[in-house]
Computed example of a mutant assay.
Amino acid sequence: MKVAAIQMPTVEDKTENIRTAGKYIEKIKTESPDFVVLPEMFCCPYQTENFPVYAEKEGGPSWQAMSDYAREYQIYLIAGSMPEIDEAGNVFNTSYIFDRNGNQIGKHRKAHLFDINVKTGQYFKESDTLTPGNHATVFDTEFGKMGVMICYDIRFPEFARRMVLQGAKMIFVPAAFNMTTGPAHWELTFRARALDNQIYMLGCAPSRNVQAGYISWGHSIVTDPWGQVRNQLDEKEGILIEEIDLEREEQIREQLPLLKHRRIELY
């Protein structure tokens, strides 16, 4: 199967961001990707005060545009993430997943909110405006089950393991590591989760804008079940396209059966 990550810029105009996503999907249609992934908060600048302002209910204009793209291009679309507001006024960091017919087949609300205060000066608190989700997300496709998590979720090994135990063959991660966490942990974390779970991981980030209030590390990445980096972009706009060999995943799990060797009576 073929996957694509669109490392696009994000501007203040939501409509322009949606249009940019569509232009990139159009650009790669001759590649016939099966799965296309957009970045975390692809439709609004990644700042806590923006999330309630840009938030839409499920089924809103941004949701509809993503559904239309999935149907038009006959792809599974992991629509990055966008601010979602529910009937009670709670705002979530939400990734909608659409099938080739534009039907929503999954929805992940970021479960672990990015609340940090690093001594180098990095302070960010998503919980100022966001509510956490409360479940892991696995969805069905013609290739088998797949998982979705959002950015900070990847730092919790139990979360990825739960998806794998539910049958996920690959985990897609819309994300936006910053200029402190990115150089230190981006590649390392994707390799670790892939190795721990003998699974393919794909991280899709926004391109870097040094003028933004929150500066993305970029470097969209694919790691494989052997813990290797298969492909990685730099910080600029671009598209990562990779062929995924699920048979190799099964072979690795048979040759080094660490999932079968778990001592669940001990932990």
Rank of each mutant, 00 (worst) to 15 (best):
Q104I: 09
S81D: 04
F98A: 03
S220R: 08
S81Y: 01
E49H: 11
P61H: 02
F177C: 07
P225T: 03
Q198G: 02
K169Y: 01
E126D: 15
L240D: 01
T15Q: 11
E31C: 04
C151Q: 11
G80D: 12
P52R: 01
K57G: 06
D245E: 11
R109N: 13
N178D: 15
A111S: 09
T141S: 14
R193N: 07
Q122C: 02
Q251R: 14
V148S: 02
L38R: 03
A168S: 14
I154F: 00
F177T: 13
Y24R: 05
D13S: 13
Q228D: 14
R248D: 09
E243S: 10
G80S: 12
A4G: 10
C44L: 02
E265L: 14
E250Q: 13
E16M: 11
V210W: 00
N93V: 01
E187C: 04
Q7S: 06
W217H: 12
I221A: 02
S220G: 07
D196A: 08
A55N: 06
S67A: 15
R230C: 11
E72R: 14
F156Q: 00
P45K: 05
P52F: 10
M82E: 09
C204Q: 09
A5I: 01
I75Y: 03
I18N: 07
L266C: 12
H185K: 09
E31G: 01
V164C: 05
M41A: 14
Q228I: 06
S220Y: 07
R100C: 10
Y152L: 00
T15I: 08
N231C: 15
P206K: 08
D140S: 14
T94C: 11
C151M: 11
S95D: 06
G80W: 00
A136Y: 00
G22H: 04
G59R: 00
L130A: 04
I6W: 02
I199V: 10
L258W: 10
E58S: 09
T141G: 13
E265K: 11
Q251F: 09
I18V: 15
I6R: 01
S95Q: 05
I221Y: 01
E87R: 08
Y200D: 07
L195S: 07
M8F: 05
D128R: 08
R208C: 08
F159G: 00
L130T: 05
Y123N: 04
E58K: 12
W186M: 01
E142M: 11
Y214M: 07
G106N: 08
N17Q: 13
N178S: 05
Y200E: 10
N103L: 13
Q211T: 07
A21S: 15
M41I: 04
E250F: 02
A160G: 10
H185D: 15
